[in-house]
Simulated assay, not measured.
Amino acid sequence: MKISISSNINIPADEAWTLVKRSSTLLYVTRGLMGFKSLSANLPFEWQQGNTEKLRIMLFGIIPVWIHQINFKAISDSRMTMLTHESGGVVKTWNHNISIKSVDNNSCYYTDDVEIRAGVFTLLIWLYAHVFYRYRQLRWRFLVKQSTKK
């Protein structure tokens, strides 16, 4: 099953793209619904194409569920897209494409496109993903508001 969720974000596209590539941004925009703990010493400052990260998923930031693997298949600065192939626990496929498109000098369009396969749990995981990505994009807007206040 697939989902696509987009938001207009009041930040220049190049600034949004810089944030997309930072591991700290993932931790911020998912905080509350989901947390991630690296199985290695630390997450890299910036995601790198070809790298694979293994993380412990923490529901609501406190309940450990499963080990999740994120493979950074493609990161394109020129197109402002990032494609990951992810899996773990009941989730066999979680292919996630993030894209940033400039709207004008001060805003951009942020999109999460996700393909999910989780066997008999696919519908349940797909429904959760709808909530999760809407929450992530809400947190993106909070992040941008905080950064523009400084």
Rank of each mutant, 00 (worst) to 15 (best):
K37S: 14
S38G: 05
S38I: 01
S38W: 02
S38R: 00
S38K: 01
L39T: 03
L39I: 06
S40L: 00
S40I: 04
S40H: 00
S40A: 04
S40G: 05
A41T: 00
A41R: 00
A41F: 08
N42G: 03
N42Y: 07
L43W: 08
L43I: 01
L43V: 04
L43F: 09
P44K: 01
F45I: 12
F45A: 14
F45H: 11
E46S: 09
E46P: 07
W47I: 06
W47L: 08
W47G: 04
Q48T: 03
Q49H: 11
Q49S: 12
Q49Y: 11
G50N: 13
G50R: 13
G50Q: 12
G50C: 11
G50V: 06
N51I: 05
N51W: 04
N51S: 02
T52C: 10
T52M: 10
T52I: 09
T52D: 11
E53M: 00
E53I: 06
K54F: 02
K54P: 07
L55M: 12
R56W: 12
R56D: 13
R56C: 13
I57E: 07
I57L: 10
I57V: 11
M58I: 14
M58S: 11
M58Y: 10
L59N: 11
L59T: 12
F60H: 13
F60L: 15
G61P: 05
G61W: 05
I63A: 08
I63D: 08
P64T: 05
P64Q: 14
V65T: 03
V65C: 06
V65A: 06
W66T: 15
W66D: 15
W66K: 11
I67R: 02
I67D: 04
Q69V: 14
Q69M: 08
Q69A: 14
Q69D: 13
N71H: 02
F72D: 03
K73Y: 10
A74G: 04
A74S: 13
A74P: 02
I75T: 08
I75W: 09
I75N: 03
S76W: 02
S76C: 11
D77C: 06
D77S: 03
S78T: 15
S78I: 15
S78V: 15
S78K: 15
S78P: 10
R79W: 11
R79C: 15
R79K: 15
R79H: 14
M80D: 12
M80T: 07
T81G: 07
T81H: 07
T81R: 06
T81I: 06
M82D: 04
M82F: 00
M82N: 01
M82E: 00
